[in-house]
Computed example of a mutant assay.
Amino acid sequence: MKLIGSLTSPYVRKVRVVMAEKKLDYALILDNVWAPETTIQQSNPLGKIPCLLMEDGGAMFDSRVIVEYLDTLTPVGKLIPPHGRERAEVKSWEALADGILDAAVLVRLERTMRDQAIQSEAWVNRQMDKVNAGLKAMSQGLGESAFCVSNHLTLADISVACCLGWLAFRFPAIAWREEYPNLAKLADKLAERPSFKETLPE
């Protein structure tokens, strides 16, 4: 398999961490989707990463779709429960983490891709409200538990840690570590895993 992505995307990192935890072999193909020479639309008509290229020539996109597929390829380190409420809880954590990222990415694009004179502070504030509300919900949901769902690593924890890692990388002014020490504790614990050490954004 081949994974088209970048070294900074949190969505790509989520897929890479899952692949590492599942011990799956793949080749990483770097592509800057904002560059004129990008070829991403040959594989994903939406022009977004990550995009997984299968051995039979097929392509799969959207990180949530990709990680769900990857979890079925081997019983090693199952990350998504097969059914029921626990499965829904894991997927809800993933949706929350991705939602925070979606809002923060929009803020970054507003700040970096639009002329300052036409940037919308109301738009930025609306998105940052989502980020802050999402972080608060994450902290409340985690509480004093060692993991987001159950008593072992799941996709929920991977999603949360990738989200927090990207915020630390791109939005260092957001003081989530100080405000939510339980999230910092989870992030620090997962940062010791090889799958996270090997996929740090750069």
Results as ranks from 00 to 15, higher is better:
Lys2Trp: 00
Lys2Val: 01
Leu3Pro: 09
Ile4His: 13
Gly5His: 11
Arg13Ile: 04
Lys14Val: 07
Arg16Ser: 12
Val17Tyr: 13
Ala20Leu: 11
Glu21Phe: 10
Lys22Pro: 11
Lys23Asp: 14
Asp25Thr: 14
Tyr26Cys: 07
Ile29Asn: 03
Leu30Met: 12
Asp31Ala: 02
Asn32Phe: 04
Asn32Val: 00
Val33Gln: 00
Val33Ser: 00
Thr38Asn: 14
Ile40Val: 15
Gln41Pro: 00
Ser43Asn: 14
Ser43Gln: 12
Leu46Pro: 00
Gly47Tyr: 06
Lys48Ser: 00
Leu52Ser: 01
Leu52Phe: 12
Met54Ser: 10
Asp56Pro: 02
Gly57Val: 09
Met60Phe: 08
Met60Glu: 09
Asp62Val: 03
Arg64Ser: 14
Arg64Thr: 11
Ile66Ala: 01
Ile66Glu: 07
Glu68His: 09
Thr72Ser: 10
Leu73Ser: 01
Thr74Gly: 08
Leu79Val: 05
Leu79Trp: 03
His83Thr: 12
His83Cys: 05
Gly84Thr: 03
Arg85Leu: 12
Arg87Glu: 02
Ala88His: 10
Ala88Thr: 12
Ala88Phe: 06
Glu89His: 12
Val90Ser: 07
Lys91Thr: 04
Trp93Leu: 06
Ala95Pro: 02
Ala95Gln: 14
Ala95Asn: 03
Ala97Gln: 05
Asp98Ile: 02
Leu101Thr: 13
Asp102Pro: 05
Val105Ala: 07
Leu106Gln: 14
Arg111Trp: 01
Arg111Gln: 15
Thr112Ile: 11
Gln116Lys: 14
Ala117Met: 08
Ile118Thr: 15
Ala122Asp: 14
Trp123Cys: 00
Trp123Thr: 09
Trp123His: 13
Val124Phe: 02
Asn125Met: 07
Gln127Ile: 02
Met128Ser: 03
Met128Phe: 10
Met128Tyr: 05
Asp129Gln: 14
Lys130Trp: 00
Asn132Ser: 13
Asn132Glu: 13
Ala133Asp: 13
Ala133Trp: 07
Met138Asn: 05
Ser139Pro: 10
Gln140His: 08
Gly141Tyr: 12
Gly141Pro: 11
Gly141Leu: 11
Gly141Arg: 10
Glu144Thr: 15
Ser145Leu: 01
Phe147Ala: 05
Ser150Met: 10
Ile158Met: 06
Ile158Gly: 10
Val160Ala: 15
Cys163Asn: 13
Gly165Met: 01
Gly165Ser: 09
Gly165Cys: 03
Trp166Lys: 07
Ala168Leu: 08
Arg170Ser: 09
Ala173Leu: 07
Ala173Cys: 01
Ile174Gln: 04
Asp188Gln: 09
Ala191Ser: 15
Ser195Gln: 03
Lys197Trp: 04
Lys197Met: 14
Thr199Asn: 14
Thr199Ala: 05
Thr199Trp: 09
Leu200Ile: 14
Pro201Val: 02
Glu202Ile: 08
Glu202Tyr: 10
Glu202Trp: 02
